[in-house]
Protein backbone atom coordinates (compact mmCIF):
# COMPACT_ATOMS: atom_id res chain seq x y z
CA UNK A 1 0.00 0.00 0.00
CA UNK A 2 2.86 2.31 0.78
CA UNK A 3 4.12 1.92 -2.79
CA UNK A 4 0.69 2.74 -4.17
CA UNK A 5 0.55 5.91 -2.06
CA UNK A 6 4.00 6.95 -3.30
CA UNK A 7 2.99 6.45 -6.93
CA UNK A 8 -0.27 8.36 -6.60
CA UNK A 9 1.36 11.31 -4.80
CA UNK A 10 4.14 11.32 -7.41
CA UNK A 11 1.49 11.62 -10.08
CA UNK A 12 -0.02 14.69 -8.42
CA UNK A 13 3.42 16.30 -8.13
CA UNK A 14 4.30 15.60 -11.77
CA UNK A 15 1.01 17.15 -12.86
CA UNK A 16 2.14 20.36 -11.17
CA UNK A 17 5.51 20.42 -12.90
CA UNK A 18 7.52 18.92 -10.04
CA UNK A 19 9.82 16.18 -11.31
CA UNK A 20 9.72 13.09 -9.12
CA UNK A 21 11.88 10.12 -8.44
CA UNK A 22 10.87 7.32 -6.10
CA UNK A 23 12.57 4.37 -4.53
CA UNK A 24 10.83 0.99 -4.42
CA UNK A 25 11.37 -2.37 -2.79
CA UNK A 26 8.23 -3.93 -4.32
CA UNK A 27 8.76 -4.05 -8.06
CA UNK A 28 5.41 -5.62 -8.90
CA UNK A 29 3.34 -2.95 -7.14
CA UNK A 30 5.40 -0.10 -8.58
CA UNK A 31 4.80 -1.60 -12.03
CA UNK A 32 1.06 -1.87 -11.42
CA UNK A 33 0.72 1.70 -10.15
CA UNK A 34 2.90 3.01 -13.01
CA UNK A 35 4.93 5.30 -10.75
CA UNK A 36 6.53 7.89 -13.07
CA UNK A 37 10.16 7.17 -12.12
CA UNK A 38 11.33 4.56 -9.65
CA UNK A 39 14.54 2.89 -8.61
CA UNK A 40 13.98 -0.69 -7.52
CA UNK A 41 16.28 -1.91 -4.78
CA UNK A 42 16.37 -5.52 -3.67
CA UNK A 43 15.94 -4.66 -0.01
CA UNK A 44 13.40 -5.79 2.59
CA UNK A 45 10.11 -3.98 2.96
CA UNK A 46 10.77 -1.29 5.57
CA UNK A 47 14.31 -0.64 4.35
CA UNK A 48 13.93 1.41 1.16
CA UNK A 49 17.29 3.12 1.76
CA UNK A 50 19.09 -0.19 2.17
CA UNK A 51 20.47 -0.53 5.67
CA UNK A 52 20.22 1.47 8.91
CA UNK A 53 23.30 3.50 9.81
CA UNK A 54 24.90 2.78 6.42
CA UNK A 55 25.24 6.34 5.17
CA UNK A 56 27.41 5.31 2.25
CA UNK A 57 24.80 2.88 0.89
CA UNK A 58 21.94 5.31 1.57
CA UNK A 59 23.76 8.03 -0.35
CA UNK A 60 24.45 5.72 -3.29
CA UNK A 61 20.77 4.83 -3.48
CA UNK A 62 19.78 8.51 -3.39
CA UNK A 63 22.28 9.38 -6.12
CA UNK A 64 20.92 6.57 -8.27
CA UNK A 65 17.35 7.74 -7.68
CA UNK A 66 18.25 11.33 -8.61
CA UNK A 67 20.05 10.07 -11.72
CA UNK A 68 16.68 8.83 -13.01
CA UNK A 69 15.64 12.46 -13.41
CA UNK A 70 17.67 12.59 -16.61
CA UNK A 71 16.24 9.30 -17.91
CA UNK A 72 14.65 10.16 -21.25
CA UNK A 73 11.62 7.90 -20.67
CA UNK A 74 9.04 7.12 -21.85
CA UNK A 75 7.33 6.71 -18.47
CA UNK A 76 6.90 4.77 -16.36
CA UNK A 77 10.64 4.45 -15.74
CA UNK A 78 11.65 1.56 -13.48
CA UNK A 79 15.35 0.85 -13.13
CA UNK A 80 17.20 -1.65 -10.93
CA UNK A 81 19.67 -0.42 -8.35
CA UNK A 82 22.93 -2.29 -8.79
CA UNK A 83 24.26 -3.19 -5.37
CA UNK A 84 27.73 -3.91 -6.68
CA UNK A 85 30.20 -1.43 -8.06
CA UNK A 86 29.01 0.11 -11.31
CA UNK A 87 30.61 -1.50 -14.34
CA UNK A 88 32.31 0.86 -16.74
CA UNK A 89 30.11 1.46 -19.73
CA UNK A 90 27.21 -0.46 -18.22
CA UNK A 91 23.73 0.53 -19.28
CA UNK A 92 20.32 0.03 -17.82
CA UNK A 93 21.32 0.21 -14.19
CA UNK A 94 22.56 3.08 -12.07
Amino acid sequence: MCHQTVGLVAGELERRGIATSSVSVLREITEKVRTPRALFGDFPLGAPLGRPHDAELQTRILRAAFALLSHPGPPPVLVDFALGLPQPGSRGTY
Partner: peptide
Amino acid sequence: TAPAAADLLAADRVDVALLVPL
Protein backbone atom coordinates in the same frame (compact mmCIF):
# COMPACT_ATOMS: atom_id res chain seq x y z
CA THR B 1 -4.96 15.18 0.43
CA ALA B 2 -2.56 14.23 -2.37
CA PRO B 3 -3.60 17.25 -4.48
CA ALA B 4 -3.39 19.50 -1.39
CA ALA B 5 0.09 18.19 -0.60
CA ALA B 6 1.24 18.67 -4.19
CA ASP B 7 -0.18 22.21 -4.17
CA LEU B 8 1.97 23.05 -1.13
CA LEU B 9 5.18 21.92 -2.80
CA ALA B 10 4.24 23.68 -6.03
CA ALA B 11 3.66 26.90 -4.05
CA ASP B 12 7.12 26.40 -2.52
CA ARG B 13 8.51 26.26 -6.08
CA VAL B 14 9.99 22.83 -5.49
CA ASP B 15 11.81 21.49 -8.57
CA VAL B 16 12.34 17.88 -7.53
CA ALA B 17 10.61 15.56 -5.07
CA LEU B 18 12.09 12.32 -3.81
CA LEU B 19 9.54 9.78 -2.61
CA VAL B 20 10.19 6.95 -0.19
CA PRO B 21 7.69 4.14 0.55
CA LEU B 22 7.44 2.41 3.89
